[in-house]
Amino acid sequence: MTGSPAAQHQLDLVPDALLAGRAADGDTAAFEALARRHGPLMRATARRLTGSLADADDVVQETLVQAWKQLDSLRDPAAVKGWLLRIVGSRSIDYLRKRRNHADLDDAENHVDQHTRPRPEDPEGNALSSSRVEALKAALAALPEEQRRCWVLKEFNDQSYEEIALTLNISPDSVRGRLARARITLARRMEEWR
């Protein structure tokens, strides 16, 4: 909505802090540039956290709605990326709770990794033929929910124990413990796999 195509293009060069400042002033073009810049990471995080392609896109959309409303409360505009990801984290957790309450049937079409995750009836039994990353996906999927959340929030979003604790509504000590258990299990699986 603002300026010429050249100016739009220029926004891609502009650092987060500047875009966040403009967006807080009500500049929709700057907000959209931020959304485009961080959208893929937000989507990837939401997919790993919710395990559902459709839920992940809902989470991204709700995150952006909330971000637009609350941007002027963001004290350090340079920290906008971490702030967006924290919203993605809590929204994803909300979705998981909602889904559990509704005891939704898992919609296989929608499932993250449904094509790559090794199936029990697979004669080979595991992801021997796929890459190490595929093996990690499978190991991650087999983790207890709470451990997986801690791991994703830490490794994907680089959140501190305190931030993860706030998102998951548990103590920082529990975060440390769950994260350690997740890593130990994953490291062991990856070594077995190799």
Binding site: R36, G39, A44, R47, R132, K137, W151, A187, M190, E191
Partner: peptide, 23 residues
């Protein structure tokens, strides 16, 4: 071993972000 896992985690992240498509 933990660092190796963390590096692999970054690979997974890159692969997931690539799968998520461009903004």
């Amino acid at each position: 071993s933990l660092r190796k896992l963390s590096a692999l985690g970054s690979e997974l992240l890159s692969s997931d972000v690539a799968d998520a498509g461009s903004g």
